[in-house]
């Protein structure tokens, strides 16, 4: 467990020092929100229409900003053969995967924390509460990152990784995206946990299944 945190801390330390991924992710996410608010703002009119469209916009921003971050997740490990150096350490491959995934989740949550207030202001959205939307977004993010981190390792040695990753990732994360968007909309509008319990269960199952599957296959993904 402690080595997982060491790997995550190392990734985050590198990222906070250079801010290469974080800056791009935040700027991209904000651009999506701004463009959608300019495009749809005048035609949405009533708050009911906004509530229908806005959760989808929010997740589009998260998913594409996340794809940018994930596509770079293993690139730093390729420089100077660092991934090989890590594979030479007496650390399980599952720990390497989990450490990278934890760092990716933290980065995505930072982007989301910055994006959501801007989204609320630009869409003039009345949030019903903070805990439940936060829980839904966190569960959706975990599912997205579990798959994304695995695919990032799979595509890192390809020349077209920036294109290949979203092409492979988006169809695979659809089962998490659909309940996440639905539950985010309801949670932001003030629904109770009972109202979205089905979506929450789906997200939870998806997160657990993909986390376990990714841990099992990661060894084969990074094998020579």
């Amino acid at each position: 467990m402690i080595r997982i945190l060491d790997i995550a801390a190392k990734d985050l330390k590198e990222e906070f020092r250079t801010k290469q991924m974080l800056n791009s992710m935040v700027i991209f996410s904000l651009l999506v929100i701004v463009i959608f608010s300019i495009s749809f703002g005048p035609i949405l009119g009533s708050s009911e229409n906004v509530e229908m469209v806005a959760p989808g916009v929010l997740w589009i921003a998260f998913i594409f900003a996340g794809s940018i971050g994930l596509s770079r997740s293993f690139v730093a490990e390729l420089e100077n053969g660092c991934l090989e150096g890590l594979k030479l350490c007496p650390v399980s491959r599952a720990a390497i995967y989990t450490g990278k995934a934890v760092a990716n989740i933290v980065l995505m949550l930072i982007v989301e924390i910055i994006t959501i207030p801007i989204f609320v202001i630009l869409f003039n959205y009345n949030i019903g509460g903070l805990f439940l939307p936060g829980l839904v977004i966190a569960l959706g993010t975990i599912g997205f990152v579990c798959v994304g981190t695995l695919l990032s390792a799979l595509t890192v040695n390809t020349r077209t990784r920036e294109i290949l990753l979203p092409v492979l990732l988006l169809p695979l994360v659809l089962p998490v995206l659909i309940p996440a968007v639905m539950a985010t909309g309801s949670a932001l509008s003030g629904a109770s946990m009972g109202d979205i319990s089905q979506e929450l269960r789906l997200l939870l199952v998806y997160d657990v299944v993909f986390f376990l599957v990714a841990q099992l296959v990661f060894e084969y993904v990074i094998q020579d």
């Binding site: 020092r17 420089e79 090989e84 150096g85």
Partner: peptide, 13 residues
């Protein structure tokens, strides 16, 4: 331990 022409070092640390 392994030393190769690749240094296995993180540039930003």
């Amino acid at each position: 331990g392994v030393i190769s022409h690749e240094t296995h070092l993180y540039n930003d640390l």
